[in-house]
Amino acid sequence: MSEAFERAIAAFEPAHWPLAVGFSGGADSTALLAACAARWPGRVLAFHVHHGLQAAADDFERHCGAVCERLGVPLVVHRVDARHAPGDSPEDAARRARYEAFAVMTRMDAGRPPIQSIALGHHADDQIETLLLALSRGAGLPGLAAMPAHAARNALDIYRPLLTVPAADIRAWLAARDLPWIEDPSNSDARYTRNRIRAVLLPALDEAFPQFRTTFARSAGHAAQAQQLLAEFAAQDLEATGGPPAIKALQALSRARQANVLRHWLMQAHGCAPSAAQLEQLLDQVRACTTRGHRIHLKVAGGFAERRGERLHWYNAPPSPKT
């Protein structure tokens, strides 16, 4: 039952040492930490993010300490404020806080070398949940590509070696070794869409399409490959149109390539992404910009896109005056 887990660990090889394992104390990260520690003794540490969102957060940390002592693995704990702002998603706020904590690892001192590799315990069920969430939101290719098995972020290589492993296989592997784990109570909270997908949709899909984890993952892989091609085309088109892009050069492209290069430019140069409606409005204005006096001034993400001379620019919106 746990053969897929064993194969995934055998195929995993980080590029840099030491290797950190994101360790929440849950089943997935416990199995990943134990397997990595057994394969590379003395070269692995556990990195626990204390979110402070639940009364049990201190208990989680104590549990992680006990498991790490049993495995002979050093534990690093980083505390964050993961509270979400009004109107913000609690899940998104917690995820941002985790990645900010991961970035701190690359600057560790106190005699410890900076960490350049971290492994996370996301598995096949998580990947399917991510894909279904993206579909529910009408996402484009970046969303449909779901989570990458390897990504570089803030000088850190992020690995997800278990993306092909079903959650049941991971728990079977743990049970065979009598390794304890904790169940996060928030995982059963039906207020969160991901939990409803896990509790309702995945069992239904399992019954209707037993191979759905494999086939859905294949589709996500196709989306990721297509997105990579789009990014390469966008980089070429941005080189031709300039940055900021020249409006006439944009007009020489098809509407689809205009959309692709504008998304790429906004993300690469300004770290923002337009909504679908905003991008459509911007494309309409680019098409209509045939006279020297045509004005473009549109809300795009957290700022504005506007015409300055023959080029399209973007700038941050000034903060609203306090009243």
Rank of each mutant, 00 (worst) to 15 (best):
A217N: 12
A249T: 13
P180W: 04
T241C: 11
I247H: 03
R177T: 10
P210E: 00
Q211I: 03
N187M: 13
A249S: 14
A199N: 12
L253M: 11
L238F: 05
N187L: 14
G242T: 03
A269E: 14
M267T: 12
Q281P: 00
A226N: 06
P166V: 13
I182M: 10
H222E: 15
L262V: 07
T214R: 15
A220P: 10
D184Y: 05
S254L: 01
P274H: 03
S219H: 15
A175M: 04
L282D: 07
L283N: 00
A226Y: 11
A199P: 08
Q236S: 10
G243I: 04
L253K: 04
A217V: 10
G221R: 10
L279E: 10
T164R: 15
N187D: 14
A168K: 13
R213D: 08
I247T: 02
E207K: 07
R257N: 07
G242C: 04
L205Q: 06
I170P: 06
P180V: 03
L205T: 05
C272R: 14
A167V: 06
P203K: 05
P180E: 01
P166A: 15
Q211D: 13
F212C: 01
L253F: 10
D206I: 01
T241S: 07
L230M: 12
W265R: 00
A273Y: 11
E232W: 04
G242R: 02
T193M: 13
I182T: 09
R255S: 13
L279V: 13
Y192P: 00
L163N: 03
T215W: 07
I197N: 02
P274F: 01
H270N: 07
L202D: 00
L283Q: 00
G221C: 08
G271Q: 13
A252M: 06
R191D: 11
W173V: 00
A168N: 08
A190N: 09
V165E: 04
P166K: 12
S219D: 15
P185H: 03
S275E: 13
G221F: 08
P210D: 00
F233I: 09
V165K: 03
C272A: 14
N195L: 05
D189L: 08
A269V: 07
A199K: 13
Q268W: 06
C272I: 15
Q225V: 11
T215R: 06
A167D: 09
R263S: 01
L229I: 06
L202T: 00
H264M: 02
G221V: 08
W181T: 05
A176C: 01
A256H: 11
I182P: 01
Q251V: 02
T193F: 14
Q281G: 05
A226I: 10
E207W: 03
L253P: 05
A235S: 02
Q258H: 09
N187Y: 13
L174C: 03
W181F: 10
A175D: 10
T164F: 15
S254N: 01
Y192W: 09
W181M: 05
R213T: 08
P203H: 06
Q228A: 09
G243K: 09
V261S: 02
R196D: 13
R198D: 14
A273C: 12
L230C: 12
I197A: 04
G221N: 08
Q228W: 01
R255D: 11
A259P: 04
P185T: 02
L282M: 13
Q258T: 05
S188F: 06
Q258C: 09
V261A: 02
Q236C: 08
L282C: 06
L266F: 02
L179Y: 02
A273P: 01
D189Y: 07
S275F: 01
A240L: 07
A235F: 00
